[in-house]
Design a binder for these strands. Structure first.
Lengths: 125, 125
DNA sequence: AAATTTAATGATATTGGTTATCAATAACAA
DNA sequence: TTGTTATTGATAACCAATATCATTAAATTT
């Protein structure tokens, strides 16, 4: 989960952390980079810090539309994605989703990913 | 879903169709391309034909590890993915997964995506 | 069976997200 | 303060996927 080498608390790490930790809209690395444009941070550092925060269990990822998006909500949950505006919303997992099935018995489950795709109320017009 | 213009039944379309239609291992476009190497088919045509088969509802896609994989099973189902060997297995959706939740009420749901990630029996040693 | 139309093909350039490289910098320890 | 080394920033490289475009070949018409 966390790296062996000690993690240094650079100002760039704090910048990325503070920029992403309260976001509920699942920003991409480029979104965070643009938000931090005034600070002179490099795009590679944004990618690296976001990846290290995922390693540390501070963020989770949502892959959508061939881009990695970041989510500070780390407890198990599901997503609603609007295929028009591409907005992603965190929602609760349905009860009983983890009931065992025959096939899952042979698996050592680490993670669940549940997404409904559709059209959000704003885009239904 | 399907295109307006008439679809021509080229030999390349048949090649890609026959190469993917019975696969249960969720191949990538490159996998299909390599299987068809002896035929002289171009990589762009493989991508195009797979995309058109998805358009036509003959295939579904599974995005994993930054690659699109193709699945001839088009009825709603879930996936088990082994994060060691990257094998993907089709499994049944749990009963009652589509029960409405408050958040989903405002959504027009088109698609469900459910994946468990873990370690398959072969990779547990 | 030609001739015609135009979708499809194949080679390859391009795109776009992401990662690798590496000299310079700065965080932390001594 | 000095030394060690993880981190940074600029940018090259990577790679799946798409766009471009002259050529080919299905499907239709004559």
């Amino acid at each position: 989960m966390s790296k062996n080498s000690p993690r240094r608390f650079t100002k760039q790490r704090r910048l990325v952390h503070d920029a992403v930790i309260h976001r509920v809209d699942h920003p991409t690395a480029k979104d965070i980079f643009h938000e931090l444009k005034g600070t002179g941070i490099g795009i590679a550092t944004v990618y690296r810090q976001l990846a290290s925060m995922v390693e540390d269990g501070i963020l989770t990822t949502v892959d959508y539309d061939n881009e990695t998006r970041y989510d500070p909500l780390t407890s198990p949950h599901a997503h609603l994605i609007c295929s028009i505006c591409n907005k992603i919303k965190d929602i609760e997992l349905p009860k009983g989703i983890d009931n065992l099935t025959p096939e899952k018995l042979s698996f050592e489950i680490n993670e669940i990913e549940l997404t409904w795709k559709g059209i959000c109320d704003d885009c239904q017009n």
